[in-house]
């Protein structure tokens, strides 16, 4: 099972599933990361975490720990 954490910079992936529950999951979904959405991984922060992604036409910063909840293909 591949998650957003494993995606390389410059890759575009599709979200297939979101793990987790409650506030964390809701917040991620509220920001537009829902099933089926396309995510482009733009860059990794200079210290290696978090990652910057493009989703629904805007830029979002996601920690790797949270990115692990996002299953992609």
């Amino acid at each position: 099972m591949r998650t957003l954490k494993d995606v390389n910079v410059g890759e575009t992936v599709n979200v297939t599933k979101l793990n987790g529950e409650g506030a964390v999951k809701r917040r991620i979904m509220d920001m537009g990361i829902t099933k089926g959405v396309e995510i482009y991984v733009r860059k990794i922060a200079p210290l290696g975490d978090p990652v910057e992604i493009t989703v629904r036409g805007y830029e979002l910063s996601v920690r790797k720990a949270d990115a692990e909840m996002i299953v992609v293909e």
Partner: peptide, 12 residues
């Protein structure tokens, strides 16, 4: 409390 994920918009 509920752990808040750090999903932050990087505005233009």
């Amino acid at each position: 409390g509920d752990p808040a994920p750090f999903v932050m918009e990087l505005p233009a």
